[in-house]
């Protein structure tokens, strides 16, 4: 069957911009990954990086539908707005969405208040992710991590090999030259693929702005009920959050720079309620985006340890 060309909608006589180059590179990576795996999956965390990654995936395989499902490893402690956003996006683009909730964590009632951020993250996310990957026998998983997020990620490969136990061994990572990625693996091994490796936080925001990519409303400032705890503004998203004596949720204009489990994700006071204001604030701000995450503060090198254990 021969198709005829519709009127062209785009031209490009100039050199590609840095965002066009990054976009093309990500698309190339995704096409390689899908071509060299049998059961790929995209880890969808609902955050802005996942939103960009999902948008790029739609571009990569257009006009075909996404050739893989989305997997959300839910902790039951995500912001309610995140879950609503997740479900509406999946419906809108007609993607297959898998939600995994670790039954052990449910049974043990794991929560960040009684068990602390480290155990909470380990059981819900790290263990939950391994369970989901194992149950579905996925041999390749896309993740939205970027190399600029954290020092230990600067050396992460685009295609990152994981053992049958989902462990990351820095010594077994493969050299990556040119645009040539090696996704081959032995039985039981899997590959994590990071199409946004070379994007920075600014690139992500700029691309969201340029492409009009929908993101969770929590990124925009709005009066929300928060309490101040250990120097962090925690949003009281539901009544599971135990208030300490004297704590009274206050309505303050806040927004979130990263999204995770609501008790572990600090809000920042802000009036930025448009995308350009968010970007403006981000550029003028003086702290890095991961500062709001309790997980990185445990100790220096903690991200690296988590990675070796199988956390993204």
């Amino acid at each position: 069957m021969i198709t005829t060309a519709p009127a062209s909608t785009a031209t490009n006589n100039e050199r590609l911009t840095h965002l066009q180059r990054l976009e093309a590179e990500s698309i190339h990576i995704m096409r390689e990954a899908v071509s060299e795996s049998e059961r790929p999956v995209m880890l969808y965390s609902i955050g802005k990086d996942s939103s960009v990654m999902l948008h790029l995936a739609r571009k990569a395989f257009f006009p075909s539908p996404l050739p893989f499902p989305l997997l959300h490893v839910d902790t039951t402690w995500k912001f309610r707005e995140m879950i609503a956003f997740r479900d509406s996006i999946a419906r809108e683009i007609d993607a297959e969405l898998l939600v995994h909730i670790n039954p052990d964590a449910v049974a043990r009632g794991i929560n960040p208040f009684d068990h602390g951020s480290a155990l909470h993250t380990d059981i819900w996310k790290t263990e939950g992710l391994k369970q989901a990957l194992g149950q579905h026998r996925f041999d390749l998983a896309f993740g939205g991590a970027r190399r600029d997020e954290e020092k230990s990620r600067a050396k992460e490969r685009v295609f990152s090999l994981r053992s049958a136990q989902h462990q990351w061994d820095p010594k077994r990572q493969r050299p990556e030259l040119w645009r040539l990625y090696n996704a081959r693996r032995n039985p039981g091994e899997s590959v994590r693929v990071f199409p946004l490796s070379n994007w920075t936080e600014l690139d992500v925001w700029q691309y969201i702005w340029l492409e009009g990519i929908p993101i969770v409303p929590l990124y925009f400032s709005k009066p929300r009920p928060v309490v101040e705890r250990d120097g962090m503004l925690v949003m009281v998203d539901d009544d599971r959050m135990p208030l300490e004596p004297g704590e009274e949720p206050q309505m303050r204009s806040v927004r979130f720079r990263t999204l995770g489990c609501y008790p572990l994700t600090g809000a920042v006071e802000s009036e930025a309620d448009t995308l350009t204001q968010i970007i403006q604030e981000m550029l003028l701000t003086t702290s890095s985006e991961r500062q709001g995450r309790a997980i990185d503060h445990d100790s220096s090198g903690s991200m690296e340890r988590k990675k070796q254990e199988g956390y993204f």
């Binding site: 021969i2 198709t3 785009a10 490009n12 590609l16 257009f62």
Partner: peptide, 24 residues
């Protein structure tokens, strides 16, 4: 026949662009 992208068909694609070609 066409240089297809999610953002519409292109008149031309240059080096480093990720596209989908259809043939006659």
């Amino acid at each position: 026949a066409r240089v297809v992208t999610f953002d519409g068909d292109l008149d031309e694609a240059q080096a480093n662009q990720a596209v989908t070609l259809t043939l006659t």
